[in-house]
Design a protein around this nucleic acid. Sequence first.
DNA 1: AACTAATACTTTTTT
DNA 2: AGTATTAGTT
Length: 782
Amino acid sequence: MAKIRGSALEAPDPSPDEAPLSTSQRAMRTHAIPYLEALNPEQREAVETLDGPLLVLAGAGTGKTRVLTTRIAHILRLGRAWPSQILAVTFTNKAAREMKGRVGQLIGGVVEGMPWLGTFHAIGVKILRRHAELVDLKPSFTVLDTDDQIRLIKQLLAAENIDEKRWPARLLAGMIDGWKNRGIMPARVPDGESFAFANGKARDLYAAYQRRLKELNAADFGDLLLENLRLFQEHPDVLAQYQQRFAFMLVDEYQDTNVAQYLWLRLLAQGSRNICCVGDDDQSIYGWRGAEVDNILRFETDFPGAKVIRLERNYRSTGHILGAASGLIAHNQGRLGKTLRTDGANGDKVEVQGCWDDEEEARIIGEDIEQAQRQGQRLSEVAILVRASFQMRAFEDRFITLGLPYRVVGGPRFYERQEIRDATAYFDVTLNPANDLKFERIVNTPRRGLGESTLKSLHQLARARQVPLFQAARLIVETEELKPRARKSLADLIASFDRWRSLIETMRHTEIAELILDESGYTAMWQTEKSPQAASKLENLKELIRFMEEFDTLAGFLEHVSLVMDANTEEGTDRVNLMTLHSAKGLEFDHVFLPGWDEGLLPHQRSLDESGRSGLEEERRLAHVGLTRARLKAKITFAQNRRTHGMWQQALPSRFIDELPVDHVEVAEDRGFHGSYGASRFDTAETLFASGFYETPGWRRAQRNRPPGGASSGPRAREPITIDGTLVAASTAPGAGLIIGMRVFHQKFGYGRIAHVDGNKLTVDFDKAGRKKVVDSFVERS
DNA sequence: AACTAATACTTTTTT
DNA sequence: AGTATTAGTT
């Protein structure tokens, strides 16, 4: 992972009349340019059309990233702009990273960095920090994560006496997000939508929420764009400055932009008009979180004089896979229309197979994978793409039994984990004691007797004095307000934070981090915890510290964390990939399995219910994305029976299966079962459940591969496998050797004698404190 | 403040 | 069915 130094490595802005063009570059223009020779005619046109708005419709596997990166290289090589004059936006950090790397390769790493290449949010923050005062923030504002957001909204609801049961904070948070996605400020919330929450209070709550954010000197993710919009709209001079700066703009995955992002881009593009958007309307699968396919469909009207280039040559998949995918997506209306084609071989047809239930589905796919593996297929080139994450379970169970290594891609991200958020909250408060939400998060974690009532007094005082909670805490410990125990505890906490803060200048940031986690009792909390996850949480904390090494300062690290919810994906080991269709976008594999093509699951019922035909079309695009991930082989399966909310339900094969062109599909009929395509195509599936399965070679092999000790004893491949170091040891066997009658010492209660042992719980008669139940790891032999 | 009982959920996810 | 969060109880 790239080392992150201080920000803004910017080349000086050139004055308008001084073209940034060296003599050697000038010479190069007249010769053949090698990186252009490697492109096909359409790609080349997309790279060389530099002036005016350009939409590149890039179907799956047509070299979209290549066009984008080559285009940047080309602009630089021609000397049309400095790196700092190019705005290039992506949705994910991963995409940004990849683009940075590939541009660097193309131009030989001469350019020290593209300061304006990044995600919408990262660029949004950068601009906001420069002009924070203009949107009522200080340049040091913090970025709230979803937890903080919910906590804040809960407080607002409580203040308004709104029943949180009837009107959940989550719901309002979702609505606010929705408005921000659409670029709607509180004043412009439509009446109808305002009435969808707490009898019309939604608009006012949204306004109150925004006010609170300013008071806290904070912005949520939506604000990073919305406040940018406000900045540009209210300060035309600032806008003009950026319009002038960005000589060229490039946008990746344009079909995923929401209204706010679109407005932002359009404002900026009014300067140079050199905006190039790359996307694929057939891969728009994020409508449910505010993406507007319309943005891409309307491009030509939004940017008059726009040129549209279609990339339809697919370099990824074989003919049959492409044919199947194209045939499927052709059922969608309201698309810009592309026909993917390949010069390559037809390859194998797309396989379709019915199964009795999800367990059999997992069994069949497991066998297929093992067979492929025997033929030399690398597991990391195999992927199982599911519609919903609950489907993963059957596969995980099966793979554990088989001893087949797998990796879950996506899932709970590293920085979203509880322990990581707690830890970073500690760092946040150390650096910035005024961060109320983070302070609240950890004030009683680990438990230190600072519960609801203490917090209430704190809030009261903070509100009365108009100061942050931390400051209020400082005041309150000087009074008799709190009970002695809470008062002492809070005073200790404040003193600790003060001390940690005083060390920032002198101590290495990683050491401070360790010190904080140690002295706060946070690591001890997990060491004491006996749950199975405790060990991996400790491991994650160590990983966090390790990761901090890559930064120079604590502050630099925290800025990164707030924006990059991105775990470092440990590559290296050869594992099958298991993920949702959504997280598969942008990836490709030799061999792709697409289970769960059931009516109600792949066109997901809820999508159908909530969004009707547009929902169905998005589901179809999802299916299309799935198919086009495959290079060589694709296999679709469906199950007759599936458990939904605990109840067994019959399921029908997805309508998308019927929509696949017959020529490109082959129905699997292995081991004598008669799968499908009968008179009504799939009505004979009962026979799949014929007996005798347990005699199949697959089952016997499965038994052989079963790890010793059974499935439950081995670590699930999803958890980190390497658990080392003293932390874990301390959590597993601290109380070993403690027996009744032994003299022990406890930090809080002093010396005593063990009266009773129950697992890791001890009953101890303390000399001073009397009989107490304690956890073994808190005592040591005396 | 810790434990238990009840209740609500159950599509997809980035920043 | 199973979990995860929350409310209520001690």
